[in-house]
Design a protein around this nucleic acid. Structure first.
Lengths: 357, 357
DNA sequence: CTGGTGTACTAAACCGGTCTAGCTCTGGCA
DNA sequence: TGCCAGAGCTAGACCGGTTTAGTACACCAG
């Protein structure tokens, strides 16, 4: 005989299917004695309800969807997603909710997956990452009327719940720090330009530059890949008046940039300071270890999962949520410009020493 | 009104539910004209079958499960899994099969997830990674009688289909190369000792060492983390007669080891050659770039997905599958021992130059 | 003793598909 | 003309749960 069904349990316990259902789901309608007996029988026969049958009666699918639209080769190494996943999993699995994961090539495919999963009732809600400037996914989600949590924002009211950290404030803290220790020519290797967080960071750099009266502050868009990070770094360092500090939007690019500096004989941090917008093992294990912005991505994942489950439970969208602003972790890849000998580990100081022009 | 059901489509097209089902699934029983009409109506009403309802009739769940049991902090950066995932996704999504992903802390939890998903009919099959020496998961899978593909092997007949690359041959190719360019003291930073692939590599090194008459060949087990990789490297390099070459079982550890060498003033490859058992962006972006074993993990993922789908389709377990043996990609982190100046990129030669004792 | 209330439980409808048995109609052939 | 085969379709059972309507019985008040 195949796996037991609710009917088998009912027969064995000498009750009806309905009674078993009540007992299992902790609803009134059975006495405590009967409930205990039913649960014991279910346990003995190692029975658990068929998730599809459950999902059928208009109930939950007990799964949420996460679709990531980035070229496979760039996601390959991004610690951000792995950490986010870990955080999500922790909360979701505690609620016995599964995660449907899908990696696709572009936004159009992503939207297709949303439609398919929604019409197939495969998921109860979605987690949306990499918010774009005018994001076509938001309308689709609205149309599908499925719970969703968007990573990025804030929005202007309406639409799905958003959770974000303050990218602007984070970028300002980096630039302020670099300026304080004397840097006047700062470059920024940005991510994909149609991402909203990329735009925010670019704008923050521009504003800070104006306020601080920097000599130069340029943002170069890339696709987040190590290849473009390396190429752009090479270009920047080949210029006659090269930047004394580069801020990288991801740790993969930062590490690639560090490699290029080494290859070109540019000392870090002596002749070039490097800051990564993303902290991870990667930033710590290279030499010198990178000054980086520490975001608690694991906690972010947990928060996203909790919020999504709340929305699914009908708690209304609730209000947008801001995560703590990331703090700058200073390591050995930054120092005052024109400072010390190549490659020597140097505890960066914060006294301002403007570079002579 | 809610989302349309098959009954709505049937009514609109003027046929019975059965006819719609036949038309949708490309079975005989309706004329071409009727089929076209039904499909047009379904398209117009944007209807797709409810996956739970479909799964109920004893049919497929159209999903497969992947459970990874490693501490979250070590998986965070492992490019291996991201690449494997990409490969899996490519094939699975082409067949409209979803991937249920779960990260858990240990094997016991992993087994719990297998049982739960199986009894809930959530998945049609499993992908099993990190095969262990006496793996308790295999019995459970057998007991659950669900299709599965195991990454690692080969097995001794029976049990689920296995797919693997030849770790032994790979390790031999590394050791042969190092010995050929003159190394006599080789260390190996291995992974978790209860993994089968770890054991294979350790044994291969020992055998090769005996055959080649090396002075020393030691394997040190670790947990794959950068922290243990760094610590073990520090210990090895602090010994009076330190190894002239270290083989790392993962690229994260190799990069961490490279950092330690830098910190201790040990030139790579001049005084220490470094080989990573795993190639990824990571190995390429550090400086010097690491000599590494190139495995096509993406292709492995594709193969695993294809095999699993075949098994699910009742093709029988088929026979175990061996992937091409990884090739060694020589970069700038290896050279003859005691060779050249620190940090200088050097094209490694293959003429044997035994180190004077 | 009657009627009302509440508890514990059962029977059956229902969710949205798939699949089988059976019906009708057409065409071919003896 | 009668019979059979096969194509095209329908009605309804079925998958394994949840949920609602209804039943049986105990208890209590008037």
């Amino acid at each position: 005989m195949g796996r037991p069904t609710i009917a088998d349990i009912a027969r064995q316990a000498g009750v009806s299917k309905g009674a078993v259902s009540f007992a299992l789901n902790g609803r009134p309608g059975v006495s405590e004695a009967t409930r205990a007996r039913i649960l014991r029988v279910a346990e003995e026969m190692n029975w658990r309800p068929h998730s599809a049958a459950r999902a059928l009666g208009g109930a939950r699918a007990d799964a949420v969807g996460l679709v990531i639209a980035r070229p496979a080769r760039t996601i390959g190494v991004e610690p951000f997603f792995s950490q986010l996943l870990s955080g999500l999993q922790g909360v979701l699995s505690a609620h016995s909710v599964a995660l449907h994961l899908m990696v696709v090539e572009d936004t159009a495919a992503e939207i297709g997956v949303y439609r398919r999963w929604a019409s197939e009732h495969r998921v109860d809600g979605f987690i949306v990452v990499d918010l774009q400037v005018r994001d076509p996914r938001l309308e689709v989600l609205e149309e599908l009327a499925l719970p969703a949590v968007v990573l990025g924002g804030p929005g202007k009211g309406g639409g799905p719940l958003r959770i974000w950290a303050d990218d602007r404030e984070a970028m300002l803290s980096i630039v302020d720090y670099l300026a304080a220790i004397g840097h006047r020519r700062i470059a920024h290797l940005a991510g994909l330009p149609h991402f909203q967080h990329t735009q925010r960071r670019i704008r923050a750099l521009r504003d800070a530059s104006r306020r601080l009266g920097l000599e130069e502050a340029v943002s170069v868009p890339t696709d987040f890949s190590d290849a473009e990070g390396a190429a752009a770094t090479r270009t920047l360092l080949s210029r006659p008046r090269r930047p004394t500090a580069i801020v990288y939007d991801s740790d993969v690019m930062a590490v690639a940039g560090l490699g290029v500096a080494g290859e070109m004989g540019v000392a870090v941090p002596g002749e070039l300071s490097i800051v990564s917008f993303d902290d991870s093992v990667l930033a710590r294990i290279v030499h010198p270890p990178l000054t980086a912005l520490s975001r608690d991505t694991f906690a972010l994942g947990e928060q996203v999962a909790r919020s999504l489950l709340a929305v699914i439970d009908g708690a209304g969208p609730g209000r947008d949520l801001q995560m703590p602003t990331p703090r700058l972790t200073v390591r050995e890849s930054t120092s005052p410009p024109g400072g010390s000998a190549a490659g020597v580990a140097l505890a960066p100081t914060v006294d301002s020493r403007p570079e002579p022009v």
